Simulated assay, not measured.
Amino acid sequence: MDLRQLPALNALKTFEAAARHESFSRAADELFVTHGAVSHQIRALEEELGTSLFLREGKRVRLSDAGCRYAKDVRSALMALADATREVREGQRARRLVVSSLSSFSARWMTPRIGRFIERHPEVDVELLSTNALTDFTRDDVDVGIRFGAGDYPDLHVERLLDEVAFPVCAPTYHPGALPKTPAELAASPRLLRSDDQMWAIWFKAAGLKGIPEPRRGVLYQDSSNLLQAAMDGQGIAMLRRSIATEELASGRLVRLFDIDAPSPFAYWFVCPPPLLASARVQAFRTWLMEEVERFRAQFIAPPTPSDAR
């Protein structure tokens, strides 16, 4: 048969819904169209086929004998088409890995490293979703989340990735080059503000100074990437997490002030829905990510001294 002689797909979908419900109104509700639109589609299909598919009995309709036979075959054909479409979509989706993480972590930690994953797994199409909103795995099309928090994520597979510390940094040319020499001197210097954070107070306590308040005046930065940029631009001294500042410290665009860490009460976590954990793309990403975390940690583990080796 010449496929050009087939009825329009939309007409067949409308007929299948109307036949299944034996109601034009219920078919209209399902298809989000009007009752009149369904009636028009059915009449046009009947004219094209040259036979009645429904028997009209007042406001009610029921399938004719021809309509019953045709409905069975149309439903079977549409189901086969739906199955074929799903298989194609699932095949493409199986290659796509969507990873959600904080914008700052995605930009400053994940992006410089993700090339190694792509080189190892060219069969996986990676999408880095940078957002500060908490992913809802029941609603969002996301495979894996990298979350920064306390680790309490019900109904998800959760693994601790990376503990975090923070410390003060600034541009090497800040003030201009006359950097604070003591924590007390730092307390009197312009400090940049970060929202939802108390890391300055934690750092000063670690430095032996108590009662130093968080900065109260100036620009309030919601995102650590913007805070980092402000520090590189010489606008002040920023308290930054190690994972965010490492690349800029290594390049010399930032310098660290004092060898004192403020331990963060939060950590980074690998999370995903339990059914997705066994998928090939998630397993490949998890393995690679754990290796990168270990490589990152190794940068901050001091080599053993001779006395340690004995």
Rank of each mutant, 00 (worst) to 15 (best):
L134N: 09
D65V: 04
S279I: 00
L3E: 12
L6C: 09
Y268W: 15
P190L: 01
A309D: 07
L249A: 11
D196Q: 14
C272A: 03
S52V: 07
A28E: 02
G145A: 14
M199H: 11
G236H: 01
E292V: 07
S76A: 13
E123V: 02
H35G: 06
P306A: 13
A71L: 03
A302N: 02
L6D: 04
S251V: 07
Q5I: 11
A178M: 11
L161W: 14
Q283D: 00
G36F: 04
F137C: 05
H40L: 11
S103D: 13
R89W: 12
A206G: 00
S307D: 13
H35S: 03
V219H: 12
Q5S: 14
V271Q: 02
L186M: 12
C272E: 05
L156C: 01
A309V: 14
Y268V: 04
T305N: 01
L276S: 05
A230E: 02
D308H: 10
E87T: 10
A77T: 13
R242A: 14
R113V: 04
R93M: 14
Y70T: 06
L277Y: 00
M232I: 04
A309C: 10
S52Q: 11
L193K: 14
R95Y: 03
R86Y: 07
A309I: 15
L129W: 13
L134R: 15
N132E: 15
A245P: 06
F148Y: 14
C170H: 10
S243K: 08
R113M: 01
L289G: 05
I202S: 08
A309Q: 13
Q41S: 12
M232D: 04
T287P: 05
R281A: 09
A178E: 12
A207N: 07
A66D: 11
P180N: 12
L81M: 14
I244V: 15
D259Y: 03
A187K: 08
A206P: 08
F270V: 07
S64P: 06
A44C: 02
L6S: 11
D261F: 05
H40D: 08
D2G: 01
H157R: 10
N10R: 14
D2F: 02
M239T: 02
G145R: 03
I212W: 00
L192I: 05
A150H: 14
E294C: 09
S251N: 06
A278H: 13
L240G: 06
R216F: 04
L49R: 01
A230N: 05
D73R: 14
R4S: 15
M290A: 11
R116H: 12
A27F: 07
